[in-house]
Amino acid sequence: MMLSRVADHQYWMSRQIERAENLARLVRISEEMLLDDETLGRGSAQEYWTPVLQATAMEESFKSLYPQPRQGDAARFITSDLRNADSIISCIRQARENARSVRDKISEEMWTEINALNMLVTSPEGIDLLEVAPQAFYEKIISSSMLFDGITEATLTRDEGWNFLQLGRLLERADMTSRFLDIWSQSTSQDAAEESLKWGAVLRACGAHAGYRKAYGGEITIEKVVDLLLFSNEFPRSIRHCLRRADEVLHDISGTPTGGYSNQCEKLTGALLARLSFSGPTEVMAKGLHDYIDDLQKQLNSSSQAVFESFVLLPSEVGRHFTRHNRPESMSDWQREQQQQQQQ
């Protein structure tokens, strides 16, 4: 048993770090790809970013903030623009705020790492690094996220809080992998070299290059990438693998034996897992990759909403509309002022 708000903070803290890591992976690969002539074909750099922004659900806010984007704007928007609540730096700041709210529940080492990451990306040195050596900047974020994961693994008691941390990370990872798969789901080309380049990039964004080669050899095709990233039971960033572990974590929280369910979240996650366990790339290609993923993302969202409803809300509150409540910026000034007034 733990405070609902604490569970919520822990869940979001790890989600936000995982999201920051995945976005860093995505931008890093993208900037690399943009160095290759073939990536662009006859298009502009801006055309390259459009599907990336679409897949990460950032296109609308990007367009409103940058009606006439210039080179570098898209990467900046995803990386460091604080007006973008989902930018890498925004995610890190939110993760750190969430960590601050639960710092009596996480280990000193976990706190120190997340605090250091936040200090880095918000410091003038960090911004300089992003300017002069963007690849090094993204590497730092990726390795800090993985370090945080490792520290958590090595220092945190396996209690309910641990489970919520895992749950956040796993659901976010599944979601981000699905977004990576979605980037080029609607623009398949006849040019095998171009396809291989694109899907190779997706694999690298997921750190799946080696895993792929081992399973399927050198040739990169869309079906095999889908097979690995959606359906693999062994690859740690595949959606099925993430859901299987999320399912275990949920059953560990509730104490219900696997195969059944005792709350909405277990029910939805279990159903989605079953669906993935009993289908494969053929079904995906028949339905169309984009539609399949769209559907999948809706179900992932329902699962994540169900976490909130099952563990944070009281039964009488379920169904009320809650906005993204745990964002520091969602707090209004008068609320912040009241928090500050208490002092002696």
Partner: peptide
């Protein structure tokens, strides 16, 4: 009062 209070570190500590 919450994380924005100046003494939040102390509360948590």
């Amino acid at each position: 009062p919450g994380v924005h209070n100046s003494a939040y570190f102390e509360h948590s500590f």
